[in-house]
Design a protein around this nucleic acid. Sequence first.
DNA 1: CAGAATCCCTCGCGATACTG
DNA 2: CAGTATCGCGAGGGATTCTG
Lengths: 129, 129
Amino acid sequence: MVTNEVSTDIAIPDPDVLNPNCPTRLVLDRIGDRWTVLVVLLLREGPVRFTALRTALGGVAPKVLTQTLKAMARDGLITRTVYAEVPPKVTYELTELGHSLRAPIEAVATWAESNVSAIMAAREAASAG
Amino acid sequence: MVTNEVSTDIAIPDPDVLNPNCPTRLVLDRIGDRWTVLVVLLLREGPVRFTALRTALGGVAPKVLTQTLKAMARDGLITRTVYAEVPPKVTYELTELGHSLRAPIEAVATWAESNVSAIMAAREAASAG
DNA sequence: CAGAATCCCTCGCGATACTG
DNA sequence: CAGTATCGCGAGGGATTCTG
C-alpha cells in the first residue's frame, strides 16, 4: 500500500506472547522479577537451604526471598521441604517443570556473559558520542 | 560438614551472574523490563515503525516505548532510522547483536507457550489446596 | 534457622496533553 | 507521525525487628 522498503504492517509472530490477555505474559512477568532467574540457576545442582540462597543472592531481604520462593512454588517450579529438626531446616528444589526452565534461562545467561562486553562498549560509545 | 543429604554450601554456577557487581545483571535487568523482550520479538522480521510497535504492543504509553527503544539503542540492540519525509517516519531494526539475542529470547518464549498450561494448573491446585 | 510482620520508598509504567 | 513534557500511582523491592 505504501512502499515495500520496510514492513509497515506488523507480522505478529506465531506466538501470542504479544497478546496482553495471553497467560504467556505470566511467564515473562515471573522471569522479569529480580530473583526468580537467579534462584533457578542456584538450584540447578540440587536442593538448597533458605539462608544459603539468601547469602548466595547477595543479601536479599528475607521477605522478598520468601515472596519469590512462594510464587515459584505456587507455579510449580520448585518444591519446599521442611525437615523436622532443631534448628529448623528447609530446602528448596527444582521440580521437573523447574528443571525444564533451566535450558532457556541458561541460554539467556550464557548470552549475557558472552555479550556484556559488547553492550558495555555500545553504552560507552553512546555516552561518548 | 553437617550431613550429605543436600548441598548446604552453594556451588556457585560457573557464571558470575549471581555477582551483583557483575555487569551480567545488566542484561537481566533489561530483559526484566516490560517491553524489551516483546520488541525483540516484533523486530525479528525486519524494521518496524514506532506506531506499528506501539499498536502491536497493545497500547504502551509513548513515553515508555521511547524509553525502551532508547535503552535498547544505547545498548546496541537496535538501530533507529529516520526518513526525511513528511509525515515523519522512523523505523527500528535489530542490530547483529540484537539478532543474536533472539535465540535465547525465543527459547524462553517457546518454553512459556509450552508450559503455561502446567503453570496455570499448578497455580490453581495451589489455591485449591 | 526460616520466615512473618511492619514500615518505607523508589521508580517503572501508565494516561494525558502538547509539539516539530 | 513520532515523539517530548508532566503528573501520578501502585507494586515490587528493601531494611529492620520479632517469633516459632
